[in-house]
Design a protein around this nucleic acid. Structure first.
Length: 448
DNA sequence: AAAAAAG
């Protein structure tokens, strides 16, 4: 099966090939032909399955003929977050380079000027987050009655964020004669209801969750004392070959503090969360993409959909409360066939969250000890140095080697001598199923 | 428990 078998135009195939793709993913293979036949679609798929291209590609061909009129977009794509919307826009640019389609990205946090100009010129594709779209609509800057194609992406995420009433209102502004595509990772009742109300004879397409399917991601739970998370993180960042890492925290304040701390210790890190203004968020992502910083400390704003190549590690500095978020977070690594590692720090308080995660992914995750927690003897022989010393050393680029030389090799008989501070497996690997007894370290807490 | 999205 190749893209050429799906009924796409030659111009589009050329753009797809130049982007380096020849084989469609399952969701693309299943969705593209019916979308080209103008059918409504319910796609049950996560990000990372190639979902975006499964609607972007056929949309480009469908929109190839016809012309946009001022204030009357011909198609609309709704995304839950600004970053996802921007990413879909990038996809349109990449795959639409041999088509002359006009596009507008309507997201909050940026000036309206350019968005208004684009709308007045007339756009074929409108990519929007609900807030800014409603705002502009109420100001009379958009007419939606020429919009014959609608994509509701990440519908379950929209639900979580309270966007469903907005989506319903937007749907009623669109012409009844239209094609509607709805994508969602899960199908909770309110999303089913939405689909029943606004889609006509939809074809359902379901593909496996990437986290259960992805054997590219090595997952580990890292047992750590809640007061020593930062030490453990730094030790692991140094012991591993961290090309680039995304570090997730549950709170914006934690993101800020951790980023500051990492920078103080000489790491090249940046941060992204909802309190960072939009232009800075974009700049931060760009710095990360470009490799100016190789560590991105993030809230769940970055958990879903962000497609950044070469992320070798994901660290859950805090175990996510919602198991779905776990799946999304770790999906930032191991993308496009690459290998990735996902470490999740667990403290005695995280027992329930971990239990839920293991239930969701249907597997147990191997538990390892945080490097600091397992090496009290090494710590005694290698007293901590002053903060000033450490950052000075790091700046001169010598610290890592010094570290290794100083580390007493005799204390490590695990065959892991080259990487003395790498986290090591817990001796007893608990065999109970995920619905069996809670592993001891999670239920009793541990000293440290 | 938090974060996100309109300003």
């Amino acid at each position: 099966m190749t893209f050429a078998d799906l009924g796409l135009s030659d111009e589009l195939l050329k753009a797809v090939n130049e982007a380096g793709y020849d084989t469609p993913t399952p969701i693309q293979a299943q969705a593209i032909p019916p979308v080209l036949m103008m059918k409504d679609i319910i796609g049950i798929a996560q990000t990372g399955t190639g979902k975006t291209a499964s609607f972007v590609l056929p949309m480009i061909d469908i929109l190839a003929h016809g012309r946009a009129r001022a204030l009357m977009p011909r198609s609309l794509i709704l995304e839950p977050t600004r970053e996802l919307a921007a990413q879909v826009a990038e996809n349109f640019e990449k795959y639409g380079k041999y088509h002359k389609l006009n596009m507008a990205l309507l997201i909050g946090g940026v000036q309206m000027g350019d968005q208004l100009k684009a709308l007045e010129k007339g756009v074929d594709v409108l990519i929007a987050t609900p807030g800014r779209l409603m705002d502009l609509f109420q100001r009379g800057k958009i007419l939606l009655n020429g919009c014959s194609m609608l994509v509701i992406d990440e519908a379950d995420r929209m639900l979580d964020m309270g966007f469903i009433p907005d989506i319903e209102e937007i749907c009623t502004k669109l012409p009844a004669q239209r094609q509607t595509l709805l994508f969602s990772a899960t199908m909770p009742a309110p999303i089913k209801k939405l689909a029943d109300r606004f889609l006509v004879n939809p074809k359902s397409i379901e593909v496996a969750r990437p986290a259960t399917a992805s054997i590219n991601i090595t997952q580990r739970l890292v047992k750590v004392d809640s007061r020593k998370k930062r030490d453990a993180l730094r030790a692991m960042l140094e012991a591993e070959d961290v090309l680039s890492a995304v570090i997730f925290c549950n709170r914006k304040t934690t993101v800020r503090d951790l980023n500051k701390s990492l920078q103080r210790h000489g790491f090249k890190s940046g941060e992204i969360h909802g309190d960072i203004d939009q232009s800075a968020r974009i700049a931060e992502l760009e710095r990360f993409r470009a490799g100016t910083v190789n560590i991105l400390v993030a809230s769940d704003v970055a958990a879903r959909g962000l497609d950044i190549k070469g992320v070798s590690h994901v660290f859950n500095f805090d175990a996510p409360w919602h198991p779905d978020d776990y799946v999304h977070r770790i999906g930032r690594t191991g993308r496009a066939g690459a290998k990735g590692v996902a470490y999740t720090f667990v403290t005695s308080e995280d027992a329930e969250a971990i239990d839920n995660i293991q239930k969701l992914i249907g597997q147990k995750i191997e538990v390892i000890n945080a490097p600091e927690a397992t090496a009290p003897e090494a710590k005694a022989e290698e007293p901590r140095r002053a903060e000033g010393d450490r950052s000075a050393e790091r700046k001169s680029g010598k610290r890592r080697d010094d570290r290794r030389r100083e580390e007493p090799r005799s204390a490590r008989q695990d065959g892991n001598g080259a990487r003395p501070r790498r986290a090591e497996p817990v001796e007893e690997s608990p065999d109970e199923g995920w619905n069996g007894p809670v592993p001891e370290f999670l239920s009793v807490g541990f000293v440290g």
